[in-house]
């Protein structure tokens, strides 16, 4: 028997002087294999063309459609209505600047992040178009890929206790990105340089270990492991920095 679903959706258009933040209710009939992508597009086309939300790939690959679904950050495109109760509340992701209704500005946040941690391979080498590629162990490539799978949806940041309390916290997505470069033999940054980026309270030591990031990550990144190992590595780095060289210890990620 098809259900009638009730959606409570956060509405506010900051560009409209007459708009005030409020919740608006919609009802829609449930269909087979229905996802929130289908629901929101139908609502806009059939009931309310002013409704704002973001999708791009609608296949769980691009990370555009992060929102808070019944209290939990997740990707709307791969959320099936059959896994949800009859009444569903949709809110925009917190932390990120609101553009309107369910649409937030993740782009600005992430671009600032790339700058802060210099999210690229640091190397003094120069590319030689005539040379064969440098070799890499396939297992290393796969380990890098495992962390490179982050889609920057922002769900881990939105779910993070520390991020909600301090604006400058880097968040799991950023720390994971740093870990990705630490694993990469092409990045020549030293442990000391990494420590300067994340060995602080806005970095790895700000993490309270609540680990909602891992719970909500739609790509199932092993964030608990990544954060744990980074913390250990950076703690040793802090000690190493003051120890004589023969006492220093290297922690592998």
């Amino acid at each position: 028997m098809a259900r009638m679903l009730k959606f409570n959706i956060f509405r506010y258009n900051p560009q409209d002087p007459n708009s005030v933040p409020h919740m608006q209710a919609y009802t829609i009939d449930e269909t087979e294999s229905m996802t929130l992508f289908i629901v929101l597009n139908r609502l806009r086309e059939e009931q309310d063309p002013s409704l704002q939300f973001d999708f791009s790939c609608r296949a769980g690959i691009c990370g555009a459609c992060g929102m808070v679904i019944n209290g939990r950050p997740g990707l709307a495109c791969h959320t099936k209505t059959k896994d949800l109760p009859e009444e569903i509340t949709l809110m925009p992701l917190p932390i990120f600047k609101l553009m309107g209704d369910l649409s937030v500005d993740t782009g600005t946040w992430f671009r600032a992040m790339y700058k802060k941690i210099e999210s690229w391979c640091h190397t003094k080498k120069v590319f030689d178009p005539a040379a064969q590629e440098e070799r890499m162990d396939n297992a290393v490539a796969e380990a890098i890929y495992e962390l490179d799978r982050c889609v920057e949806c922002g769900c881990c940041v939105a779910a993070c206790g520390t991020a909600l309390m301090r604006e400058d916290f880097l968040g799991a997505t950023t720390l994971n990105r740093v870990a990705r470069f630490m694993l990469d033999p092409r990045d020549e940054r030293t442990e000391k340089e990494y420590f300067d980026i994340i060995g602080t309270d806005e970095g790895i030591f700000g993490c309270m270990g609540l680990l909602a990031c891992q719970d909500v990550c739609p790509k199932y990144l092993p964030l608990q492991d990544v954060l744990g190992k980074l913390r250990k590595k950076m703690a040793f780095a802090a000690v190493n920095n003051i120890l004589p060289s023969f006492l220093r210890k290297d922690i592998k990620l």
Partner: peptide, 16 residues
């Protein structure tokens, strides 16, 4: 050349 350049810039291509 383009594939090798991507490798140089950081793409974790699967390897032999």
């Amino acid at each position: 050349v383009a594939m090798r350049q991507m490798a140089f810039w950081g793409v974790p291509w699967n390897r032999v």
